[in-house]
Design a protein around this nucleic acid. Structure first.
Length: 616
RNA sequence: GGUCCCGUAGCUCAGUUGGAUAGAGCAUCUGCCUUCUAAGCAGACGGUCACAGGUUCGAGUCCUGUCGGGAUCACCA
């Protein structure tokens, strides 16, 4: 039974029968009726005035009559200013509830046999995860879960940037300054431990640079290369990278280490493995705390040479071209872009070459038909180019590529800057929201008779719900302002607000079970309250919403839906008693309704990685 | 400068793909717990949907331009 489709179908037939014009059911504009009018769904009749020489009101009347006589579900209708409001029979809604209230997987779609990959997280290994990664991970994990709910077979992967100058800086600093300290000997979480040495390197480097600026070499470099009217401060700020490459002792050592790694020097590789191992152990802890897990990790140290074969193939097919200096290019001007280099003149790969190879590798590994990359929007251009190149190569999965671009996470004070120490650490952030939830919980005292372990488990769920919901409710595409004090709010439009609706229902259901609840009496409940209908209407729309969130790769739709459903339930709960309903029939009906609301809230929140507590 | 994204209440965000009088939360103020969990409910206050044109029965939504903010335009990743 699909209520909306039935109405559209009947309305389309009605238009044909009454006005002699063929229209497609999906072209019937059907929207939920606004609260101030009577009805469940509204058909906008204005479009029909194009081919019917009657007033919108007259058309509405005729079509309303038609629907009322031809569709049993339609109990009544009214026409207001060209809007045909359709009132459905209460049995439509009570029938729907009876059919679905016990369906545990309601809202989840049957398998569609398609395999899709979601790439997310994808950190560098020189520093711990921060707020930006948190948005990425939450979006990626939610998207993966939503796609699963929509019937896809999902493969979660990340590509870890485990090589390059950054990790060499950490390695060098550790080698020079640690005195053999380890995460174990210091008691510092292992990814933070490695990050600390990266910071140490930067600190020492700045000191070295500042000292150098006082010397003769610096003076002559400044005089020779300064731009007109440029102060020494400004000049040396811009000169930093050049200093690193051309003058710095630390810079030379770090570059040396990178070369040594690239040539496979056993000692360097061993050190690299040791420090990356620390980082991975720390990441795993953080990812486990957030609730994300992966099917496969790809490492840039293993993929950065890939893709050359595909470039050769493209060359052979004439899709790419080689310049006189030996570099290989693709011309993307036909799709409004530039020329992009694919192989350097020395034959080595660039970033995009590696991504071409990695895409192919993944296809070979998993046979996926679609791939979603969760990567910040600063890489929009890169992914546009990557996808176009894969299309030119006619890769079998190239029609199913999607860049889930998300905006920057800013603080109320502005952009996060590591130099100013304003980067919000992922572990700290989680600890903070959980502490806030703990404080709130102790104040309320509702968990006092549970064991400390149970209390802690609940408090974690509440804190993480606040954090996750706060981030996921924002449309991915938009950049967002993250206010730490708001993220720990437990009231209003928040994760805990939704958990609370669930907890209230569970509490009622527990009591009902003690009393022994009457099941079949609900069938006799004939006249529904407006708020009951609203809840069921909302439940009815859930599967479509899941499909839409999957199609648009947008978890914020699920967050918004869960909030609206919880809000509707809170109001219903406030206005109507469940266990002390007017009749046995009403009580049984409301128990079923509440049960299904709880079920759907749990399913929806599960899709965005939020677990529900039984009590709070 | 070229391209892309964003601009909605004091703040943080929705707005079902063009439908009715633009909605929530936070903040401020006011009510509601001897009654199923008050992390709740109700009310008040708060808007030139950045601006100007256009398309049409109808525009926050589509088109053009302007202003403001961000990103990006490497043989870096």
């Amino acid at each position: 039974m699909d209520i909306i489709k039935n109405i559209q179908q009947a309305a389309a037939e009605g238009v044909t029968a009454l006005f002699g014009q063929a229209v497609q059911p999906q072209d019937i504009a059907l929207t939920p009726t606004r609260k101030e009018f009577a009805g469940d769904y509204t058909i906008v009749v204005f479009p029909f005035t194009k081919f019917v020489k009657k007033s919108p009101d007259a058309i509405g009347q005729e079509l309303g009559e038609y629907l009322k006589t031809h569709l049993p579900a339609v109990a009544d209708f009214n026409v207001v200013k060209g809007f045909l409001n359709i009132v459905l029979s209460d049995t439509v809604w009570s029938g729907f509830l009876e059919e679905h209230f016990a369906q545990a997987d309601y809202g989840r779609h049957a398998s569609n046999g398609e395999k899709v990959m979601v790439e997310y997280c994808s950190p560098n290994t020189n520093k711990p995860l921060h707020l930006g990664h948190v948005r990425n991970i939450l979006l990626g994990e939610s998207t993966a879960r939503i796609l699963e709910a929509a019937g896809y077979d999902v493969v979660r992967v990340q590509i870890i940037n485990d090589r390059g100058i950054a990790i060499c800086k950490s390695m060098l600093a550790w080698q020079k300054f640690s005195g053999g300290a380890t995460p174990e000997s210091t008691g510092i979480k292992s990814d933070h431990f490695v990050g600390d040495y990266y910071v140490e390197f930067e600190k020492r480097f700045r000191e070295e640079y500042a000292e150098w600026q006082q010397g003769e070499t610096a003076g002559s470099v400044y005089e020779a290369q300064k731009k007109e009217g440029q102060s020494p401060e400004q000049f040396f700020k811009d000169y930093k990278d050049k200093y690193f490459n051309e003058h710095s002792a630390l810079g030379r050592e770090a570059s040396e280490m990178l070369r040594s790694w690239e040539s496979g020097d056993p000692e360097t590789v061993a050190l690299w493995k040791k420090m990356n191992g620390w980082v991975y152990a720390g990441f795993e802890e953080t990812l486990a705390a957030i609730g994300a897990s992966f099917d496969k990790y790809y490492y840039e140290s293993e993929t950065y040479l890939l893709g050359k074969g595909m470039v050769e193939k493209g060359l052979a097919e004439g899709v790419f071209h080689k310049k006189d200096d030996g570099s290989v290019w693709v011309n993307l001007e036909d799709v409004g872009m530039d020329q992009k280099v694919l192989l350097r003149r020395d034959g080595t790969s660039v970033y995009i070459t590696q991504d071409l190879g990695t895409a192919r590798l993944r296809y070979d590994d998993f046979g996926i038909s679609r791939m979603a990359y969760v990567v910040a929007d600063e890489q929009n251009y890169h992914f546009q180019a990557l996808f176009e190149v894969l299309k030119k190569l006619q890769e079998p999965y190239s029609g199913g590529l999607y860049h889930l671009a998300y905006g920057m996470v800013n603080l109320p004070s502005g952009r996060m800057k590591s130099r100013e120490g304003t980067v919000v650490d992922a572990d700290d952030l989680m600890a903070e929201v959980i502490a806030e939830a703990r404080a709130g919980s102790q104040e309320r005292g509702a968990l006092a008779d549970l064991s400390p372990e149970e209390q802690e488990s609940i408090v974690r769920r509440i804190g993480l719900a606040a954090l996750k919901f706060h981030i996921i409710k924002v449309t991915p595409r938009k950049s967002m302002v993250f206010d730490p004090t708001e993220s720990v709010d437990l009231q209003g439009q928040t994760g805990p607000y939704i958990q609370n609706a669930y907890v209230r229902i569970r509490s009622v259901l527990r009591k009902a079970e003690e009393d022994g609840m009457g099941g079949s009496a609900s069938q006799e409940y004939a006249v529904l309250q407006e708020q009951e209908k609203e809840l069921i209407r909302s439940l009815y729309e859930f599967p479509d919403l899941v499909a839409r969130a999957a199609a648009e790769y947008d978890p914020s739709h699920i967050a918004g839906y869960a909030y609206n459903l919880a809000k509707a339930f809170h109001k219903f709960y406030h206005d109507h008693s469940i266990l002390r309903a007017e009749s046995e029939a009403a009580k049984a009906f409301r128990l079923k309704l509440s049960r299904m609301v709880a079920q759907v809230l749990q399913t929806a929140m599960g899709m965005i990685g939020i677990e529900m507590p039984e009590k709070m």
